[in-house]
Design a protein around this nucleic acid. Structure first.
Lengths: 243, 243
DNA sequence: GAGTGGTCTAGACCACGAG
DNA sequence: TCGTGGTCTAGACCACTCA
């Protein structure tokens, strides 16, 4: 036995996944839908809320309810060996970077293991894929390591303003922490998520062999179409024992 | 300007986080709360739905609304070098393991890179921490590698029924994929999550040097208090070039 | 059976977006 | 200004839990 809400949500869901309702299409007005399913408006709206929670529709106040375009999955590749944090790149990714001078404080100072008020450079990167929001990154680098200009980027990338390959001393450790949480109101509006849809966050701290943190960065991805992949290779020496 | 729903949710939220409403405490009946805030019952219920979405309260049909105990964060440590997948262990973790013989099919056969109907052993692990659900794991191992008995586990652990250290040929690669999704109805009830609260899933595939998949496993954690940490160390050889 | 939350209704009024 | 979704109400009835 299923509630009317679930029955309606199920019917609309099947129409969306089978393509009978196409991407970006506007649904009929809520009163019309309520009449079609012979339910009251609040009941119909609760069914739409289910679909919104599943990321299938987007509600836009004053305009209507729209079928969400199925977004390509975003894959974050961990390990930090290669400097591109993001691999959905095929040229369609447009990254807007805001650079600012700031100083370490609070949690950030702890993360970077520097005293409060240490000079840092902050990069805020908003990535868009065909006008749709893709991801958000905040990157912090000690100011003396920050490149003078980032505008020269031939292929806009998410993150890594520091040239890790030529770092002196060389980098030693990359630590990445993955977590799930609800977006802040700002993140929800930038990423066009309902405030109840979880985001996937990755906090990356890169340390050089001297123990200095050369980058602390955090990415925020829409949880419903983002993955992170981490691959660990175990080298074996001559004697067959693990390194 | 904020809606009454948000105002009520904000008030109750502050009561919960400040401890004025204690963990496991039952909230007053919904009609009483509605009267206290001078709103209708549906409005009050929508405020409670917000808190439920944030994981602050648990609604139990027929019994009441309860303040959720703040759960310790679960940390999944990636890399697979040390065989324990889970590190919240301090003895309070109780793991129930169900073992079954099965055969590869569909997506699982692809993941393990074996023909369909290959014999596998399946381990289903439900972990609980002080009677509260903690995590769920499904682990698949080629049947010839599965240990004869898992009942001898001195410290119950999440996963790794295979003795990775003594594997012949030795293991070569661990790949871990992190994703966020809504729980299935079964997962939601086992983990006592609302069906709208996201879960953090980790799919781990371990391959030996011969290219054989020796384990495919997936963990499901409550998204609101689980993390995954991956650490990559970059070894440097004598000449100072990266390995 | 008493008390609780779950679902649903019919209708009012407000806020936003576009022409 | 008009059409849209957003919020809210007062009340009915159902389903679950527990004594």
């Amino acid at each position: 036995m299923s509630s009317r809400r679930d029955a309606i949500a199920g019917d609309l869901r099947s129409q969306i996944v089978t393509g009978r309702l196409k991407a970006d299409e506007r649904l009929p007005p809520e009163p019309d839908l309520a009449a079609r399913y012979s339910v009251s408006l609040p009941t119909l709206r609760s069914a739409l809320a289910v679909l919104q929670g599943e990321g299938l529709i987007e509600k836009v106040h004053g305009r209507g309810n729209f079928v969400r375009r199925t977004l390509r999955r975003i894959t974050y590749v961990g390990g930090g060996r290669c400097p591109n944090a993001d691999t959905s790149a095929d040229g369609a990714l447009r990254v807007t970077v805001h650079t600012a001078k700031t100083r370490a404080r609070g949690q950030l100072a702890v993360l970077m293991n520097v005293p409060a008020r240490s000079p840092l450079t902050e990069f805020i990167c908003l990535a868009q894929e065909r006008e749709l929001p893709h991801s958000l990154a905040r990157i912090y680098v000690p100011r003396d390591l920050a490149p003078a200009a980032v505008s020269e980027e031939p292929t806009p990338r998410l993150g890594v303003p520091v040239d890790l390959g030529n770092l002196r001393p060389p980098l030693a450790e990359v630590q990445e922490k993955v977590a799930v949480r609800l977006p802040t109101d700002e993140e929800a509006s930038i990423l066009r998520l309902g405030s109840a849809r979880a985001v996937l966050t990755i906090t990356r701290v890169i340390t050089d062999t001297a123990g200095r943190v050369v980058e602390a960065a955090s990415w925020v991805f829409p949880g419903d179409h983002a993955d992170a992949v981490f691959t660990t290779r175990h080298q074996i020496d001559d004697k067959g024992t693990e390194e």
